[in-house]
């Protein structure tokens, strides 16, 4: 599973500027987390929740788009059903659907952002926003690294299961559980990190010259559409929050 900022360009049909993606992500997670699901707010929520679905679909990530679509449809139906149920069932339904509809769009938007952007594009876009190297480099390393951590964690989990360390294993002490899982992961990650710094040195990242890039970053017509849609959603949302229609 490729979750990191990829090094090579996949077969994307529509190119979006990383800045547009970033803007869309902020708006989507903000509206979904603080949003209201009653009345007009419900429809705005649906409209905004559609953004990650469409973007994932267009970028050729069919399986993720379908998973997301099913989950979000499920939670929307739950939210409609909730109106007719009362008591303890109401709380459970509300909570489940609330969790899904509030956090999932942001998560999948983030997934889309990192899976459809190459490292080069990301750095160039950040540079165009005049962000200092001191922020850009750690950010890039971080996005590149989170999948590595997940990967290492998976392998170490398997190795530890073989030794009977884990939930259901013969060592049930919680502190030991944390210790024997966490420390190998940290060690492995630090080691990979050292190699990364060596690689960065050989690539000449340390010279204080202006970076050049072969990535062409710029706003296109597709950016305008996405930007317009997201902006419309944000304005409607702000309007709704203020006067409640």
């Amino acid at each position: 599973m490729q979750v990191s900022l990829s090094a090579v360009k996949g077969r994307t049909k529509m190119e979006l500027d990383p800045r547009t993606k970033l803007f869309a992500m902020i708006v989507v997670s903000m509206i979904m987390i603080t949003g209201d699901i009653r009345g007009i707010g419900f429809y705005i929520g649906i409209g905004i929740a559609l953004i990650p679905f469409v973007l994932l679909l267009i970028s050729g990530n069919l399986s993720k788009a379908i998973i997301y679509g099913i989950l979000i449809t499920f939670s929307s139906f739950m939210e409609i059903m909730v109106m007719n149920v009362s008591g303890i069932a109401n709380i459970i339904f509300l909570f489940l659907s609330g969790m899904i509809s509030r956090f999932l769009p942001g998560v999948f938007m983030g997934y889309y952002l990192v899976s459809s952007t190459t490292v080069g594009e990301f750095i160039t876009a950040m540079k165009k926003m005049r962000i200092s190297d001191k922020i850009v480099i750690p950010f890039t390393v971080m996005f590149r690294f989170i999948p590595t951590i997940v990967d290492e964690n998976k392998s170490i989990g398997m190795a530890m299961k073989m030794r009977g360390i884990g939930i259901g294993g013969n060592r049930k002490n919680l502190i030991e559980l944390v210790e024997y899982r966490l420390i190998p992961v940290i060690m492995a990650t630090v080691r990979v990190g050292n190699e990364l710094s060596a690689a960065a040195l050989t690539k000449g990242l340390e010279t204080n010259q202006k970076r050049t890039s072969i990535c062409k970053i710029g706003f296109h017509f597709s950016d305008l559409i996405v930007f317009g849609y997201v902006m419309a959603g944000a304005v409607l949302f702000a309007f709704n929050q203020m006067n409640g229609f």
Binding site: D133, K134, I137, P138, F139, T140, V141, M142, R144, F145, G193, L196, S197, A200, L201, L205, E206
Partner: peptide, 8 residues
């Protein structure tokens, strides 16, 4: 750069 990578 080495430090910045560590930060990341």
């Amino acid at each position: 750069v080495k430090d910045l990578i560590n930060v990341g």
